[in-house]
């Protein structure tokens, strides 16, 4: 059983790592993230990673939909999902394999920015607790984006449609945490918007606060979207 799942995971990893566009995304991601970070780094004169993690949700809004857009839409378009679902795999394993492989690639993207942390350690003495909680928050946030992207990708056979819909969905969710929006939101709704916004939970992590409620929110989000993907794959019968 484990070996079967591992073979699927391995194939998905190859799909991510044997793709030239993905390496271009990775270089672009690392370049933009470093540029945005070092733009203010010397001005602030502070040994912290805050500005890098503040910019991250915005960058991920573009990069995660680009990574997830083909996960199921391409399988459906080419018909390869028929191969997978007639092998001794079930929908849950397929979704799990894609999600985990995607997550590994996202962590690889983050690792490309380790140079930033090394510079920080060389020039000053950062709060490693905050650096750790921020990375953890970033992984949670990216996982939520990825689960959403995989679900939306399972609804269509067009990668471009999947990209645009994922971007829009996550952009609107991100919008809910913006102050200029919350200031204008009706009183009772404000709390709801903050609760369902991924970024507002992420903010606590980059301030060094690892709370159970934020972690559970992220995990629930991932669970719900992966479950929706399983349901979406099963709906081929109707």
């Amino acid at each position: 059983m484990k070996r079967k799942f591992f073979s699927l995971f391995q194939k998905e990893l190859k799909n991510y790592f044997f793709s030239l566009p993905n390496y271009l995304y990775a270089v672009l991601f690392a370049g933009i993230a470093a540029y945005l970070y070092f733009q203010t780094f010397f001005v602030q004169n502070q040994a912290d990673t805050n500005s890098w993690f503040q910019n991250l949700p915005f960058l991920l809004l573009f990069f995660i939909p680009a990574l997830s857009m083909g996960s199921f839409s391409e399988e459906k378009k080419k018909g390869t999902w028929e191969i997978l679902l007639t092998l001794p795999f079930n929908e849950l394993q397929l979704v799990g394999g894609k999600f985990l492989a995607g997550l590994v690639f996202v962590i690889f993207l983050f690792l490309l920015n380790l140079g930033m942390v090394a510079t920080l350690a060389f020039l000053g003495s950062p709060d490693w607790g905050v650096v750790f909680s921020s990375f953890l928050g970033a992984i949670f946030l990216a996982s939520c984006y990825l689960a959403t992207g995989i679900f939306i990708s399972s609804l269509t056979t067009q990668q471009a449609v999947s990209f645009v819909l994922t971007f829009l969905f996550l952009f609107i969710n991100d919008f809910f945490s913006q102050n200029f929006f919350l200031m204008r939101a009706p009183g009772g709704w404000k709390e709801l918007f903050v609760t369902i916004s991924l970024r507002s939970h992420y903010q606590n992590f980059i301030q060094g606060v690892i709370s159970l409620s934020d972690s559970l929110f992220f995990l629930s989000w991932i669970f719900v979207f992966l479950l929706l993907t399983v349901i979406s794959l099963k709906s081929r019968d109707f």
Partner: peptide, 24 residues
């Protein structure tokens, strides 16, 4: 099973593809 239009993972080699199917 050989589905209609023979869908394959083009980024793999025949050996890698068959290895994957065998493991599955």
């Amino acid at each position: 099973y050989l589905p209609e239009n023979n869908p394959l993972y083009s980024f793999l080699t025949p050996w890698e593809y068959l290895e994957f199917i065998q493991a599955a």
